[in-house]
């Protein structure tokens, strides 16, 4: 068969991409007794869901997940709320600001974080926002904003200005034209941006690491990293279970935007 080499290569890729995921799942389904045994196997001997409920039972993890949820909800809504008017302005009034904003999107993606994080930490310290969730929300909003703005202005641009003008001519005020004509057309874009901002915040580790040093206020990524304590392997099962659960929001997001990803529209969109 002519295509055999292609299939062999494809299989190799599938194995490479899948095996750590399968191992994570396998670890999440193992009992503590099995974890302690030598020569771990792919298939758990007695698969159990106990690790998932154990992870929920951990005070630290549940609290951290709730804090992450609060931070992500506030960050995403505030981000969309303040970037919506700006995105509208960027799309409708072409100007220098536009180019500067796009430039800033690029710069914010590639700059060494340390240059910003030190002075940012000092500013937040002056504002008494270190070790607080509002402090983290402020930072997440600031750093999701450029990309959210860029995403949203693309959606605004896709709404023809003529539609808006036609509504105005029909006697609707400018504001009513915006609310009744533009807003419904923008809704999918707003939802996508909202989801993107939510995921960015939910997954974010670095700023949280610097800003939240007190274990009582830590978000989920930080708590997961601190999770494996001196007890060692016995806690790996619940850790794997919690890690899987922490991935669910992102998986939902990517399932929704899959189609756009394929067409390459989102290429380079989400920083790895």
């Amino acid at each position: 068969m002519k295509r055999l080499p292609s299939y062999a290569a494809l299989l190799a890729y599938i194995v490479f991409l899948a095996f750590p995921l399968v191992w994570l799942l396998s670890t999440a389904l193992k009992t503590p007794q099995e974890m302690a045994q030598l020569d771990p196997t792919w298939i758990p001997r007695e698969p159990t869901l106990a690790n998932f409920s154990d992870a929920f039972g951990e005070q630290d993890l549940t609290g951290a997940a709730l804090r992450s949820l609060v931070v992500a909800i506030f960050s995403s809504f505030i981000t969309v709320l303040i970037s919506l008017p700006a995105a509208y302005a960027m799309a409708r009034y072409r100007s220098l600001v536009n180019r500067v904003a796009i430039g800033w999107v690029l710069v914010s993606q590639v700059f060494p974080f340390i240059l910003i994080i030190i002075p940012l930490f000092m500013v937040l310290r002056e504002l008494e926002l270190v070790n607080t969730l509002p402090g983290l929300v402020v930072v997440h909003v600031t750093f999701t904003l450029p990309f959210a703005l860029w995403m949203l202005q693309g959606y605004v641009r896709a709404v023809p200005p003529e539609l808006e003008e036609a509504a105005s001519v029909d006697g609707a005020g400018r504001l009513r034209a915006l609310v009744s004509v533009v807003a419904p057309l923008l809704a999918p874009g707003v939802v996508a941006t909202l989801l993107f901002s939510f995921i960015s915040s939910w997954n974010e580790f670095l700023f949280a690491l610097v800003i939240l040093q007190d274990p009582d206020v830590m978000t989920l990524p930080l708590t997961l990293v601190r999770f494996t304590g001196p007890e060692g392997v016995a806690r790996l099962g619940p850790l794997a279970a919690a890690s899987l659960m922490a991935t669910i929001p992102s998986l939902i997001f990517f399932a929704i935007i899959q189609r756009r990803l394929r067409s390459g529209l989102m290429a380079g969109a989400v920083k790895g």
């Binding site: 750590p20 997954n203 990524p221 922490a246 992102s250 990517f254 790895g272």
Partner: peptide, 13 residues
């Protein structure tokens, strides 16, 4: 999938 996973979870995995 790797793209959709939180970096921390990738590290732990």
């Amino acid at each position: 999938v790797p793209w959709a996973m939180p970096p921390v979870v990738i590290g732990l995995m």
